[in-house]
């Protein structure tokens, strides 16, 4: 999988590159509008992470150009400007998603994987891990071919942890992803524990475990 990161902030770029490379993606980077234009002119990318504020041009303009030349699929706008106008303009121009800074790494992976899943229907659409099989289309989960019933939140938690199976997912990242933006100002994220507890109970016969990491967050473990 080939991913292009268009981001002018070197540290930001470095973080994203490091984290995404661990997933075995092939990462290319551009730090300005001109380089970005040149790269997308030559190569095909499965996903493009596009920062709106570039030193020599607007990311939205670049998106327009990409769409015009038929290469605008799989674009995720990454912006520090959480402005409604930009979000709407970006999505209207045909961006696949909009991620506002600051975001959690876990969220970045979830968004990138969602885009890649949507774009590549090759092979199996099913997600398999241990003795678990998940069909994201119908949102069904099976343990050794026996379906288990999860509610919306339990399913979202499981999917999020599977998407980020190699890393520690902080409680804040999980809460914001599953419970939505409203929740982000609550004084503690302890309430997610009861859903985790239910999920664990339902996954008793599975070969995966939801591990709590010292009150920091959760991690999926395949036994």
């Amino acid at each position: 999988m080939k991913i292009l990161i268009i981001e002018d902030e070197p540290e930001m770029l470095d973080n994203m590159r490091q984290s995404l490379e661990r997933e075995q993606y092939n990462i290319e980077a551009a730090t300005d509008y001109k380089t970005a234009m040149r790269k997308v002119g030559v190569y095909e990318y499965d996903c493009i992470l596009l920062d709106i504020g570039l030193p020599d041009g607007n990311g939205l303009e670049l998106l327009k150009q990409l769409k015009d030349s038929g290469k605008g699929d799989g674009v995720i706008i990454v912006s520090a400007r959480d402005s409604l106008d930009d979000r709407l303009t970006g999505l209207n121009l045909g961006a696949d998603d909009y991620l506002s800074k600051p975001f959690h790494m876990a969220e970045l992976h979830a968004r990138v994987k969602a885009v890649l899943r949507r774009r590549h229907f090759d092979g199996s659409k099913l997600v398999e891990l241990g003795n678990l099989t998940i069909d994201p289309e119908s949102r069904t989960v099976k343990i050794d071919n026996a379906e288990i019933i999860l509610n919306r939140k339990e399913y979202d938690i499981l999917m999020y942890l599977i998407t980020n199976k190699t890393r520690l997912v902080t409680k804040a990242a999980l809460a914001e992803h599953v419970w939505g933006d409203h929740i982000d100002q609550s004084d503690s994220f302890d309430f997610i524990y009861s859903q985790i507890k239910n999920l664990r109970k339902k996954l008793e016969s599975a070969t995966i475990n939801v591990e709590a990491v010292y009150g920091v967050g959760y991690k999926l473990e395949v036994v």
Binding site: N15, S19, R22, P102, H104
Partner: peptide
């Protein structure tokens, strides 16, 4: 803020 948060998350990873 994004850089700091992501750096720490990477560090955890």
């Amino acid at each position: 803020l994004a850089i700091s948060i992501n750096k720490l998350e990477l560090f955890l990873e």
